[in-house]
């Protein structure tokens, strides 16, 4: 329980920093918006029924790229003044540090999505306030932030840190992208939710497996 408390203090610290500058959130949001605009020019999006074909893909590409932007900031900020070393000196399990950072990243991503989703609804003329869609977004984002936090800590140790994160992260993320896009498409198509269950289960499995693996292996990544 001590670890949970300290993880929450790390979240508090990240949230306070973010609320003061709003750097990460605003850049993530603008980037997601830009992705939608670029897609509009690339695919001539219109509010007709055909848009449903590519809308799920656009949504998740926007979330994915905007999310990577946020993840990159997450550990670069810790590295700037040696803060990560300061955290490592604290009498806290490394897994608690991982949990704190992952929760913070999850919170920022969900916030970005909460702002981007209504814009998306307007541009694509699609209903987005459906519990099933929100569940899919939540499951996809949990997996994203879970592995993403580990990979953010990995790539911050490399020479070309901003570039390395997507290169490492995207191949591993493919199952989440497939499952999220597929189930989002089914929801937009109005298919019964049962049909999406395999995808929901796949995302659940991904989330659980990689949260455990990341939780256990984080300490090796940050060890000095």
């Amino acid at each position: 329980m001590d670890g949970v408390k300290k993880a929450l203090w790390i979240v508090w610290k990240d949230v306070v920093c973010e609320l003061r500058t709003k750097e990460t959130l605003s850049s993530m949001f603008v980037f997601a918006l830009l992705a939608i605009v670029i897609f509009n020019f690339a695919f001539q999006l219109r509010g007709d029924e055909r848009v449903g074909l590519i809308a799920p893909g656009v949504l998740w590409v926007a979330f994915t790229f905007a999310g990577v932007l946020g993840l990159n900031r997450s550990f670069i900020k810790e590295k700037d003044h040696g803060c990560l070393e300061g955290l490592m000196l604290c009498p806290v399990d490394r897994s608690a540090i991982y949990a704190g950072k992952a929760l913070g990243n999850l919170a920022f991503m969900l916030l970005m999505e909460a702002i981007a989703l209504p814009m998306f609804a307007v541009f694509f003329n699609l209903p987005v306030l459906m519990p099933s869609l929100l569940l899919v977004i939540l499951l996809g984002t949990v997996g994203f932030a879970g592995v993403g936090t580990l990979f953010s800590a990995i790539s911050v140790n490399t020479k070309a840190r901003e570039v390395m994160l997507p290169i490492l992260f995207f191949p591993v993320l493919i199952p989440i992208v497939i499952a999220a896009v597929k189930s989002t498409a089914q929801i937009f198509d109005g298919v019964s939710f049962d049909q999406s269950m395999p995808w929901i289960n796949l995302m659940l499995a991904f989330d659980v497996i990689f949260l455990v693996v990341s939780f256990l292996s984080f300490e090796y990544v940050v060890e000095g």
């Binding site: 990995i154 140790n157 591993v172 493919i174 497939i178 796949l202 497996i209 292996s217 990544v221």
Partner: peptide, 27 residues
């Protein structure tokens, strides 16, 4: 550091393989 970080990535990558295969098959 290289060895440690690469080890972690090698483990994560390999664990991912069956999930990738399943997801692509269903897809």
């Amino acid at each position: 550091q290289r060895a440690r970080v690469a080890a972690v990535f090698g483990i994560v990558g390999f664990v991912d393989v069956p999930i990738v295969f399943m997801s692509i098959r269903w897809w």
